[in-house]
Design a protein around this nucleic acid. Sequence first.
DNA 1: ACCTGAACACCGTTCAAGT
DNA 2: ACCTGAACACCGTTCAAGT
Lengths: 240, 240
Amino acid sequence: MASTPQQSDGPVRPRGPRTRSRASHSLESVLAGAVEILDESGAQGLTIRALATRLGGGVASVYWYVSGRDELLDLAADSVLAGVLEATADVGGGDPIEDIRTIALTMFDAIVDRPWLGAYALRDTTSQIHSLQLYERIGEHVMRLDLTPRQTFHATSAVVGYVIGTAADLGQEPPAAVVSGEVSREEYMASAAAQWRALDAADFPFIHHILDEFDGHDDRDQFLGGLDLLLAGLRLQAQG
Amino acid sequence: MASTPQQSDGPVRPRGPRTRSRASHSLESVLAGAVEILDESGAQGLTIRALATRLGGGVASVYWYVSGRDELLDLAADSVLAGVLEATADVGGGDPIEDIRTIALTMFDAIVDRPWLGAYALRDTTSQIHSLQLYERIGEHVMRLDLTPRQTFHATSAVVGYVIGTAADLGQEPPAAVVSGEVSREEYMASAAAQWRALDAADFPFIHHILDEFDGHDDRDQFLGGLDLLLAGLRLQAQG
DNA sequence: ACCTGAACACCGTTCAAGT
DNA sequence: ACCTGAACACCGTTCAAGT
């Protein structure tokens, strides 16, 4: 999935000024480069130096477009949410709760695809315009339920909080492993299951009760299980 | 709210050499020191060097007790959950869902007290024993609802995911401010509300619909609003 | 068994200077 | 307006050496 290095091969080219000695960026190219690095090596791999190298320029030029590493992460995450926004633009045909579910699931899938997203999406709506629009979009569907403003506010925040929270949790690599490729997520989950199995059943009746469900479970099913509880509660509230 | 340092004052008293030239730690004192720093300056402030200085020793000695900074954060967070475990030991008198609500709220309050907790609590049950026990405890109450193992697994994970997700979100400082004390959380929220108010009402009908609720809202109420939706859905499932 | 000082290999960020 | 190289002030982690 890595993009080609975009190697600037010196001051080549026959005629024309095009010296190439000086790199030229834009906010879009900076964020696109950041997203590439994030996809390849996670948040830890996104250093300003690595980004500058990928862009073929010096470190300091990044700071022309972005105030620092934190803002870079926020904006890179937010830029990706444009895709979720687009993918959910048409949602709205039927049952409001069904529509909310569809949007939430699209968000979840986007974060599963890019685990680093969970920690930086929807963090600061004053700088993250797409995050704000996504919040707005979910909220508009919740409004269709004719609750009070307060209920509408709480329900929308709960859905967003649940999605981000659950997805961020899943996106977290086990203590230093996955990125370096030493341990796959499957191996890690299997070892966790084994460790649970070794626990004393008298001390951990619940863990043993759900062990077979945990072992080899599908993250998406787990996410949907909780989401549907939340939405069932919401439907109940909407019915009065 | 920080616990007392639990200062181990060396191979104490009687007489003896007491040179003080050599520091002496323990895993407990290392974690206690880490928690102090986290309470004072957040995760960003917890550097190995700052911790070593607080302990009165050299940097390298920290690595005798902990494999690295990540594990330090995980263990420090988990050590604090011992308090939540203790505080919820007696819960269990009445309605299972009411009990789940009580435990979830206690967790939430603990994270509000220590915003750094949200990002590191319940991350890795193989190294975080208290996290595992808390998960177990909530699960035991869910078991009382007589659902299928799969439903029990999903419901417990959903509650934990919602608590951690929501609390972690609230615990996030606005882009570089709060820790340094430049901008208070109140000021930040007020400015966010002002910015929302400035949005075009045609483009953001939902935001305007909930603006008065958002402005000056209480985080705890918001948390409970969503939690009660989730629990209502769970109750419905238990009755079904 | 546990602690230390010093070193290594990085970081984010700034700034005077260039174009 | 935008880019650069070099410097500053940090980091986490390791390791040979001490006790």
